[in-house]
Structure formats: structure tokens, C-alpha cells
Design a protein around this nucleic acid. Sequence first.
DNA 1: CAGTGGTCTAGACCACTAC
DNA 2: TAGTGGTCTAGACCACTGG
Lengths: 260, 260
Amino acid sequence: MPPLYRKIAAGLREEILSGRLRAGDRLPTETQLQDQHGVSRNTIRLATALLVNEGLVEHVPGRAGGMVVRQRVTLTFHASRAEMPGPYSESDAWFSEVREQGYEPSQTFELRIEALPAELAQRLGVEADSPAAVRRCIRSVNGNASSVQDTYYPMDLCQEVPELLSPHDIPQGTTRHLAEHGHVQVAYEDEVVAAMPGPTEAAILELPAGTPVLTYIRTGFTPERAVRVSVTTFAADRNRIMYTLGNADVIAKFRASEEP
Amino acid sequence: MPPLYRKIAAGLREEILSGRLRAGDRLPTETQLQDQHGVSRNTIRLATALLVNEGLVEHVPGRAGGMVVRQRVTLTFHASRAEMPGPYSESDAWFSEVREQGYEPSQTFELRIEALPAELAQRLGVEADSPAAVRRCIRSVNGNASSVQDTYYPMDLCQEVPELLSPHDIPQGTTRHLAEHGHVQVAYEDEVVAAMPGPTEAAILELPAGTPVLTYIRTGFTPERAVRVSVTTFAADRNRIMYTLGNADVIAKFRASEEP
DNA sequence: CAGTGGTCTAGACCACTAC
DNA sequence: TAGTGGTCTAGACCACTGG
């Protein structure tokens, strides 16, 4: 026999998943739920905490607030397209993807110099705690933070390619600048993981409780060495990552035939 | 001023992240924490619920139990390697990857016939609710469920390739059988998302509270059509997905030079 | 102002599991 | 059997926000 609070949560979950309650709809208030089920408020809060942690509802403060069924907008990040040959910088690609999907993109930049944590140093094939330039890019959709990207460049590369140290967007893309100095990236390794955010990540991305983050770590290689590592953290409720493997034309043709 | 329960959680989080508490260590009991901070038990439980939801600790029942710092084993799933040309089936690739990483793999199979949900039907370019064979494979590492994979084949393909309807593992791999009947997959589209599990997913994967799932949806294309969709759900605390783009030899060479 | 959720207390009884 | 967490109650005061 499941405990009371789980049964109450299951009932509400059913209402939402079945579609009887839609995104934006208000759930009954805590007092109403107490009366309906004849339990204490604490029990109701245990139940709703479950739904919040599943990302189904969120609490909205104030008199007109209450518990509201969450909206889900998904933005697609095409990992195979980003930074592939072409005249675009990665942020151009991202901007046009977001616009294509009907939203308004914006981003902020920041530059720091940091000692490389061991995990990342290992990926770059350099010593832990050696210095690196970190370019942080926070990307927002319709004004809501959507992803944070930290890209780490070993310090020796920055001396060769001083453009990397700009604290602003680099319109032509850093990949381009690296290439012009002889560092042409010919391979990428991507690692995709998911986890619950710590409080700092939750703060940056303004994540409601119960929202995991989707992180992808890309290491870029020239024929000689690893030149950079990017750690991109997405709010998982608003983003997905897409990869295309093999003959991409086949997929494009298929999509075209589906259109009409 | 953050509320009490957050301050208490922050203190414990610090202990864990700083390394003073290691995986397997027990946190103070609830009674001890009550005394230390002079608060009620309910407040302590609010604090520890946060840590549980961040996946940092888990509750172990019984006298010798308590709250224990969670262990993190990560298994790598190489999405670019799986099903790429070669004599191996996908499950062979998975088995050897798990063994390489020092764990013991096992899996169970199941076959169902189902109406295709609209989402997946659209990916296959067929009508919603048309019938499909679903091969479910639950993969475990050291006896713990680690991922569930459901692969959907449109019914017309199953008539052509009756092997698909076997309720067991197909040693040579379904991809191989499809190819032998003229359906050679030449492109794949992968979609990666993360979310909190519903109760059924949590049950199958035996997920502790606060563990997100990492889902990847792969659509396989022949030059003519989409032939199958696989939905693989990983426990995010035990798995990561890896992609290699571009010239893989460059990365292999880099790894080799790092070894000594 | 009225009503929402946010936080917190001080109790209680139960189920489980190692000792 | 003793000690852990799991569940639940019945109160309380507060901060916030719309009408």
C-alpha cells in the first residue's frame, strides 16, 4: 500500500498527464486538497513536492498564484552542425537556430583566467592547475537563461592567438581565429551527461526545483593536440541535443518528403 | 537571509563536496542534526530532502543505516561506435564496453506489439497508431538495472524480416538482419534529452530519489526510409553518452600519446 | 486587504534492519 | 530489541502579491 502522500500525488499526476489539466492551469490550493483528502497540510506538501521534483508543476507565489502546471518549450541544439565547416561562428549557428524555432535569442560574455581543474586538464593533455583562459557565454531565450557555456583554452594558445582573450563575442568565431593561426580542429569528442544542479547552477539558469541539467563537454582536436574544452550546461526542461551520424542528405531528403 | 533548512543543507553539502565526507560515509543522524542546530525534525528533513534531490546522499533504512553519501560509477556509452559498420551487434558492443570498464553486464529481452504513439510515428514517417513491433532490452551492470531500450519497427518490415519478432537477443544484431533483407541503414539521427523520471521509469531502473534520466532517441535511416526508432533511457547517475565527430584517428592518437 | 504558499515546531506511531 | 528513517497530525507565524 503506497503512503497517502504518494496516492495524492498519483491522482494529481494523472490529471496532468492525461491532459485534463493543461500547461498554465492551476491545481487546487493546499487548503482545498487538505479538505478533499482529509489530511494535514504537511501531507499535501509532501505530495506536491513529488510533482515539483518531477518537473510537472511549479509553485507561484501570491494571491493569484498557487500550483501551476508547467509549460514545456523545447529548443533543439544541433551538436553535429555547430562548428562544422562553414563561414559561421558557433554563436551565429545558435542564434539562427533559435530564431528558426520562433524565439528571441540573446547572450552575454565574460572572460576569466583560471587554474584548470584536473578533470578538464586531463582532457586537454596538460597538467592540472595550469592556467587557462575561460570564455563564459550565457545564452538566453526570450530573456530567460537557457544555457551556460564555459570554453577553456590552454594559456600558451592565447599567446599565439590573442583574440581569444577578448571579453566579448568574437563575431567570426574562435574556431576561425584558431584555424588562421594554424590550429585547425579536425575532430571533436562530445560527452553528454545529466545531473541535478547544485545551487549555483540553479541560480544562473534560474531553474525551478526538479529541473535537471543536461551537460555536454566538447573537446576539440587539431591533428597535433587538444586545443580547447567547452562545458555547456543546458536547463533540461527547455533544451535537447541532436546529433546526425552518417549520410545527412538521406535524412534531409526524408524530412522534405514528409513536409506536404 | 536563506531559510534555516537551506543553511543546514548548505553546510552538509559543503562537507560532501569538499571531500571531508566521502562516498559511503554516514551523515549525522536526524536526531543529532536536530540537537546540533536546535531545530525540529521536520526542518532537518526539509534540509536533507534537498540533498537527496541533488543526488548527493541517499537514505538507507535500518539501525546501521542512516543518510549515506552516494557513490558515483560512470559507465560510458559510445553512441558513435554503436551499430557502426563491423561484425558486431549493438549488444556485443555494449557488453564489451562494460567489461572493458571492469563491470559485469547482463540483459533481458521482451517483445510486444503496440500501436505507435504519435511522437514516434512521426519520426518513422508512418501514421500514428499504426502497429509496430517493440523490442525491449533491459541492461544491467553488476545486477543493477542501468538502462531500458525500446526499439520500434514498423509492422511491414517485420513481415519482410521475421527475425525481428524474436523475443530473445538476436546475436548477429537486428541491424545485420535488416541489411540482409536490403534495408541498409546509412544515417542516424540522435536526440538527447534529460528529465526527471516518472514513477514507472523510477521503478524499472530502481532509481533513488533525485536521479534524473538521460534519454536518447535514435532514428535509423536507409536511403529510402526510416526503419526504426530506439528510445534508450539511462539512469543519469551511472551513465554518460559519448560522441566522436570528425577524424576519430586523431583522437585515438592523442589518447595513445597520453598513456605513458 | 485576503489568500496564497514558505517556513517551522512539537509531538506521534510505524516499518525496517543490524546487533 | 534498539535505533534508524518513513509517515502523519495540528497547530503557528510570515512574506508575498493581486484585487
